[in-house]
């Protein structure tokens, strides 16, 4: 049993746009894992649907040789996150493991962080979420149901990271690469998404991050996102 790893993890993700088919299995998996509130036709029309990860479409060219690029967008857990300095109560901050944590019970709901996020990946609980009985039985006990008036966003499934870390600690070993997988990465049929520790150069995500095809979304804003998109095509 190797001794426990000393260097803290720095979680990151690589999404291979050449593999992504835009089938939105990740969107459904995220709903299943993180107790996202159900939207209704009315609340969706008012722009209040919750999708912590969404697939953006960028069309290039015109019919007949038109192409579309699918772009899964989720919280990029930026190292220089614009949403962190503006929160007046430290409800969102950057923890040692490189995650941009949203502390639900600390948030007072000024929503400044959502304005400042260039990726528009933050969602606000305008109402108390409600699930008609017996759908509440499906709620994941590892994840808190956010009350009304609180901001929420993708957490890289911090509950799965926490559970894996506790298991590794119990067996006093370090986390293996690929042992922790957020719900979206786990469910992606085309295996386009890879999650891992960027501090560990041997991990698959680090190798993909250094590959020639890797770029980062709106990197010029200086947010230093931690999701690497691998270019589509040759």
């Amino acid at each position: 049993m190797d001794q426990q790893d000393t260097k803290p993890h720095r979680w990151g993700m690589a999404i291979d746009l050449d593999r992504c088919t835009g089938c939105e299995a990740c969107v459904a998996a995220c709903h299943a894992e993180n107790n996202l509130p159900l939207s209704t036709p009315d609340s969706a029309a008012k722009g209040r649907a919750f999708h912590w990860i969404r697939i953006d479409r960028y069309y290039e060219g015109a019919f007949p040789d038109i192409k579309v690029k699918f772009m899964p967008v989720l919280c990029q857990q930026c190292d220089e996150a614009p949403c962190e300095p503006v929160c007046p109560v430290y409800a969102t901050y950057h923890n040692a493991e490189g995650l941009n944590v949203q502390v639900y019970n600390r948030c007072v709901g000024t929503r400044y962080c959502a304005n400042n996020c260039p990726y528009s990946v933050r969602f606000f609980n305008w109402f108390e979420p409600v699930w008609p009985e017996p759908l509440t039985l499906q709620l994941n006990p590892d994840v808190f149901v956010r009350p009304v008036g609180v901001m929420e966003k993708c957490t890289f499934c911090s509950q799965r990271i926490k559970r894996a870390e506790l298991e590794a600690k119990q067996e006093s070993r370090s986390l293996r690469d690929g042992e922790v997988q957020p719900a979206c990465v786990q469910s992606c049929p085309a295996e386009a998404m890879v999650f891992g520790d960027l501090n560990d150069p041997a991990s698959r995500v680090s190798r993909l991050a250094q590959s020639g095809r890797a770029t980062r979304f709106m990197e010029d804003l200086g947010t230093q996102p931690k999701v690497f998109y691998l270019k589509r095509g040759e």
Binding site: G47, R48, G109, R111, R122, F124, W126, F127
Partner: peptide, 15 residues
């Protein structure tokens, strides 16, 4: 009592 939803706020217009 109800939450900010009764106002016209939405994503992305949070203010």
């Amino acid at each position: 009592a109800k939450g900010l939803g009764i106002a016209g706020y939405r994503r992305p217009v949070f203010w």
